[in-house]
Amino acid sequence: MQKQEYTITVYTENQIGLLNRIAIIFSRRKINVESLNTSPSEVDSVHRFNIVITETEEVVKKLCRQIEKQVEVLKAYYNTNDEIVWQELALYKVPTAKIAEEVKVERLLREHGAHTVVIRKDYTVFAVAGHREETDKLIRVLEPYGLIEFVRSARVAIIKDSEGFHKKLKEFENREPSRQVIENEYLDKNREVFSM
């Protein structure tokens, strides 16, 4: 099996210590987490993690089961890049004087979809949301114009065919939740099962 980029989406209770519990599932297996984002989800009291790793599907599947096993984890999904819509936010700090001098810079920024966040006499901060390659490209573009500082956020991702978590959460609250909620989705993907 080939390694590729996977985005893991985890819905959890909002509990101190859970970040560590999830993080050590990766570090224990010496797996590098390329990006990690955690924030409240659309559902009250439920947090959402996005974790990006490059691994084989088999490894990712096992990791998701280990994550789901944690008491305070509601659900874990994994997706390839074509199953999600994702963005990373990048901020670029450039000397304001340089931009004033060179009209070209303004055009370049516009071409890259950057918008201005702050303008000060000494520097200006631009923001771009996009994929890694796009935000990387803009670094190279801005370097000749004295890029002072650059920062990029973790990936945030929406699963294309997901229906959100409101309905699922209601089910979790039931004592006898539906099979779909309880079950790890991957069971049905276990191709070998009925191949006899």
């Binding site: 096992k62 789901e68 099962v193």
Partner: peptide, 17 residues
């Protein structure tokens, strides 16, 4: 009883959770 055990080390033909 633990779904994380299925396929962890040995690939199963039929998992019975």
């Amino acid at each position: 009883i633990d779904p994380a055990e299925i396929d962890k080390n040995v690939k199963t033909t039929v998992p019975v959770w």
